[in-house]
Nucleic acid binder design. Structure first.
Lengths: 167, 167
DNA sequence: GTTTCTGCAAAGGTTTTGCAACAAA
DNA sequence: TTTGTTGCAAAACCTTTGCAGAAAC
């Protein structure tokens, strides 16, 4: 986990008169010690790997703080579960493509999309504060050659690669 | 409600060996008798206005069918509630802008965005099946003149206008 | 010391499900 | 008839919360 993240969290806590506790430390380390998406329950497990004393309630109370700090984002991956994405620190404008064949999540960035979203919002009389795109798609390779490069269907995301940058 | 919608639903039911019942009729009429977004609970209320005998369980069992039929879409409006949008029949490619000031939902369409999403998907080796954009934004008029044209903050969406077409 | 934080367990809200009766085809 | 559907109520889930003790500052 990046040293800067630690500092930004501490600054945030300070500014809101919140306290630094061993539990929050463990939760923060767990959340930003991975590049994979996670649910609240998964974060609890990961945090407990670092500090067995972390409770479910504290995880649920800490998650909204991390989101409010701007370091963590709640994302909609369309599986009716609340999922958090720690990758917005490194890639503040990335979006998600979900493979309907293997469930793989591909993160991508595209500056044209950003510009377009901005134009559309302004034309409608708004200033955009947060934009997100979700694309569900099927894998060409699977349909052409019958094999999918990715893992077979799984319940949870397993992104391990960096976001692809388009243009 | 459009006659075509009724027909498409009936065809769908037929094709899946599902039966047409008075409860399903009431739920379908309720779902597509509005252009507003609704939750499961709201749909229950609306369906009961037409047929008092509709049960909550049947609504919850019917919703996934309507989504599967392609006529209804589950959308993420970012309020941690499951909301359904019946407007994809008339505007299959629309997206949502959510005003962070007054909570108003603005539906919009933009063909450039569609093309871009398509290009990006194909470049990544996928064929897109479903694309959605969510923009959170603040109202310029409110910030410039202190007044918001829309309703004050409310819990639920109240879109009554047609989607704006950009370009 | 004062204020915030924590864990626990209970409560809240939403969605799903087993079952017996019922209705469509 | 046969097969699918319904309502009910219980169960399953996920998230929030009240409270008393513990920890930060």
């Amino acid at each position: 986990m990046d040293q800067t993240v630690r500092e930004r969290i501490n600054l945030f806590l300070r500014s809101k008169n919140l306290r630094r506790t061993s539990q929050r430390d463990a939760i923060v380390e767990a959340a930003f010690g991975t590049h994979e998406h996670f649910t609240a329950e998964e974060l609890l497990r990961m945090a407990r790997d670092r500090d067995g004393a972390v409770s479910r309630a504290t995880v649920y109370r800490t998650l909204p703080l991390l989101v409010e700090s701007g370091l963590l984002r709640e994302v909609d991956l369309g599986r009716n579960e609340t999922v958090y994405d720690p990758n917005f620190i490194d890639h503040p404008n990335h979006n998600h493509l979900i493979c309907v064949d293997c469930q793989k999540i591909v993160e991508f960035e595209d500056e044209h999309i950003n510009v377009l979203e901005d134009c559309i919002s302004r034309r409608l009389g708004f200033s955009p504060s947060s934009k997100s795109i979700r694309i569900e798609a099927s894998c060409d390779r699977l349909h052409n050659s019958g094999t999918c490069v990715n893992q077979p269907k799984s319940t949870r995301s397993t992104r391990k690669t960096k976001p692809t940058r388009t243009k």
